[in-house]
Simulated scan of single mutants.
Amino acid sequence: MVHDLCYAELAFDGYQPTSLLEIPGAKEIGVEFHTLSKTYNMAGWRVGFAVGNHQILRGLRTLKTNLDYGIFAALQTAAETALQLPDIYLHEVQARYRSRRDFLIAGLAELGWTVPKPLATMYLWVPCPPGSTSTDFALSVLEQTGVVVTPGNAFGVAGEGYVRISLIAECDRLGEVLRRFKQASICY
Score class of each variant (00 low, 15 high):
Met1Trp: 10
Val2His: 10
Leu5Thr: 07
Cys6Trp: 04
Cys6Val: 06
Tyr7Cys: 06
Glu9Phe: 03
Glu9Ala: 01
Leu10Cys: 02
Phe12Ser: 04
Tyr15Leu: 03
Tyr15Lys: 10
Gln16Pro: 09
Ser19Ala: 03
Leu20Ala: 13
Leu21Asn: 08
Glu22Arg: 07
Glu22Lys: 06
Glu22Pro: 00
Ile23Trp: 10
Ile23Leu: 12
Ala26Cys: 03
Ala26Met: 05
Ile29Pro: 01
Gly30Glu: 02
Glu32Leu: 01
Glu32Asn: 02
Phe33Met: 10
Phe33Tyr: 14
Phe33Trp: 14
Phe33Glu: 10
Phe33Asp: 03
Leu36Phe: 07
Lys38Asp: 15
Lys38Met: 11
Thr39Val: 14
Thr39Arg: 07
Met42Arg: 06
Gly44Ser: 07
Gly44Asn: 15
Arg46Gly: 11
Arg46Gln: 09
Val47Ile: 12
Phe49Trp: 15
Ala50Phe: 13
Val51Cys: 13
Asn53Thr: 04
Asn53Cys: 05
His54Trp: 12
Leu57Gly: 00
Arg58Ala: 10
Arg58Gln: 15
Arg58His: 14
Arg58Asp: 07
Gly59Tyr: 09
Gly59Val: 04
Leu60Gln: 01
Leu60Gly: 00
Arg61His: 12
Arg61Tyr: 12
Thr62Gln: 13
Lys64Ala: 14
Asn66Arg: 14
Asp68Val: 10
Asp68Tyr: 08
Tyr69Leu: 02
Tyr69Trp: 12
Gly70Asp: 00
Ile71Leu: 12
Phe72Ala: 11
Ala74Gln: 08
Leu75Ala: 05
Gln76Asn: 15
Thr77Gln: 13
Ala79Ser: 07
Thr81Gly: 14
Thr81Asp: 14
Ala82Asp: 01
Leu85Phe: 11
Pro86Asp: 11
Pro86Met: 04
Ile88Pro: 09
Tyr89Met: 08
His91Ala: 15
His91Ser: 15
Glu92His: 14
Gln94Asn: 03
Arg96Ile: 02
Arg96Val: 06
Tyr97Asn: 04
Arg98Val: 01
Arg98His: 00
Ser99Asp: 07
Glu110Tyr: 07
Val115Pro: 08
Lys117Thr: 14
Pro118Cys: 02
Leu119Glu: 08
Ala120His: 11
Thr121Gly: 09
Met122Ala: 10
Met122Gly: 09
Tyr123Leu: 12
Leu124Ala: 00
Leu124Asn: 02
Pro127Tyr: 00
Cys128Val: 09
Pro129Thr: 00
Pro129Met: 02
Pro130Asn: 15
Pro130Glu: 12
Pro130Ala: 10
Gly131Cys: 03
Ser132Tyr: 14
Ser134Lys: 03
Asp136Ser: 11
Phe137Cys: 05
Ala138Lys: 06
Leu139Asp: 15
Leu139Ile: 08
Ser140Met: 15
Val141Gln: 08
Gln144Ile: 09
Val147Asp: 00
Val149Phe: 03
Val149Ile: 07
Thr150Leu: 13
Gly152Met: 01
Asn153Thr: 11
Ala154Gly: 08
Ala158Met: 06
Gly159Asp: 03
Gly161Ser: 00
Val163Ala: 11
Arg164Val: 06
Ser166Tyr: 04
Leu167Cys: 04
Leu167Pro: 00
Glu170Ser: 12
Cys171Ser: 08
Asp172Thr: 13
Asp172Trp: 13
Leu174Gln: 02
Glu176Gln: 14
Val177Glu: 00
Arg179Asp: 15
Arg180Phe: 09
Arg180Trp: 06
Phe181Thr: 05
Cys187Gly: 08
Tyr188Gln: 15
